[in-house]
């Protein structure tokens, strides 16, 4: 049993505050600023990735245990496959090769 004698889960509160701040910031950038649409998408996309990182590291303890490194490699690989599927689908289906 882990000896966690701390009464206050500081790391978790910080993770929660970070996710709230990033969500509000993303909403403000999207609806409250005059940046161009592509700049907005890059910024809020980056915020989404940071927020996913906060969840994985601070809440899901991805590095924990003997399989911590395997977990990390597995998730990074899955994200790579996901990126290929999403970017590849958009590329193939919107550049005209399949559309015509």
């Amino acid at each position: 049993m882990e000896k966690t004698n701390k009464v206050f889960p500081g790391k978790l509160v910080i993770g929660f505050l970070l996710s709230i701040v990033m969500t509000v910031l993303a909403a403000w950038i999207a609806l409250g600023t005059d940046f161009s649409k592509s700049v907005i998408m890059w910024m809020i996309g980056a915020l989404a990735i940071f927020q996913a990182g906060v969840q994985l590291i601070m809440f899901m303890h991805i590095n924990e245990g003997k399989s911590g490194m395997i977990n990390t490699i597995n998730i990074v690989y899955s994200v790579f496959i996901a990126a290929v599927i999403v970017a590849g689908s958009i590329w193939i289906l919107t550049t005209g090769h399949a559309a015509h």
Binding site: I70, N74, I75, S78, V79, I81, A82, I85, S89, I90
Partner: peptide, 17 residues
């Protein structure tokens, strides 16, 4: 964790669509 990796890919196909 490996199942969650598969879930990431599942959701990525729905996002791609």
């Amino acid at each position: 964790w490996i199942f969650l990796g598969a879930e990431i890919v599942l959701f990525s196909t729905l996002f791609a669509g």
